[in-house]
């Protein structure tokens, strides 16, 4: 167990070090997310009383699209130089490779969100609301679930032609239940509705995350073999 944890930390820190050095994933993700929010800001002219009901949808469109862009690169870089093979040659459980990659993708996505969220509040004049910690919980759960599904399918499409096109086509249908939950919970919290309404969607996100992280962990070995 101690060895497995140590290998997980080694895998995770390597990915973070690579990303911090190159910023090949973070920068495109952030710029793309910002562009989507900017377009929404100019495209829709909602009256102030309706803006809150649309913000959740706009936020999650920006987040899922930009995360897809970033995560599609995560295994691509490993494949390009054959370094994934070198990692697979080490006596390390394949599931740990998935968990390391998932956590590094999640970390990069969170950094992007920290940079992006102020623009959401600024563009749509959202005042600070009392349930802000719950808003953050929804962001964390929704992002984690998305990263789990996208990381798995990023490995599935590793050898596919038109990998960048294939990834969203595979990920989005599976992520639909979670993104519905995330949008509803976000909108509900921002609009100041009773928290109990948001909790039902938050529970859905928790269940989604548990199911897909477990499934992806178990399937990852078979995904890498083919």
């Amino acid at each position: 167990m101690k060895k497995a944890f140590s290998q997980f930390v080694i895998l995770y820190t390597k990915d973070i070090r690579l990303e911090m050095r190159s910023k090949e994933t973070l920068l495109p993700m952030f710029v793309f997310g910002l562009l989507v929010l900017t377009i929404f800001n100019f495209a829709f002219d909602f009256p102030p009383d309706q803006i809150m009901s649309a913000t959740g949808g706009m936020l999650w469109i920006a987040l899922t699209f930009s995360m897809t862009l970033g995560i599609s690169r995560s295994f691509g870089l490993e494949k390009e130089y054959g370094s994934l093979d070198s990692t697979l040659l080490a006596p390390v459980d394949r599931g740990l490779i998935f968990l390391g990659k998932l956590l590094s993708n999640f970390t990069v996505a969170l950094i992007q969100e920290v940079l992006l969220l102020p623009f959401l509040f600024l563009f749509f004049n959202i005042p600070m609301f009392p349930a802000f910690p719950w808003f953050i919980s929804v962001i964390l759960l929704g992002t984690f679930g998305f990263c789990a599904v996208a990381t798995l399918f990023s490995a599935v499409t590793l050898n596919a032609r038109m990998r960048e096109v294939m990834l969203p086509l595979l990920v989005f249908p599976i992520y639909i239940p979670a993104v519905i939950g995330a949008v509803r919970a976000t909108t509900s919290i921002i609009s100041g509705e009773p928290l109990a309404w948001a909790f039902a969607w938050i529970r859905l996100l928790i269940v989604f995350d548990i199911i897909f992280v477990t499934l992806a962990y178990l399937l990852f070995e078979y995904v890498l073999e083919e």
Partner: peptide, 27 residues
Amino acid sequence: GFLSHAIGLYPNLTVTENLLYFAKLSA
């Protein structure tokens, strides 16, 4: 030990960082 025609290393890490990563991963 397996060596393919791909270099099998991370281009943004130094030689030492690459080797240390694989050495630690192999425990």
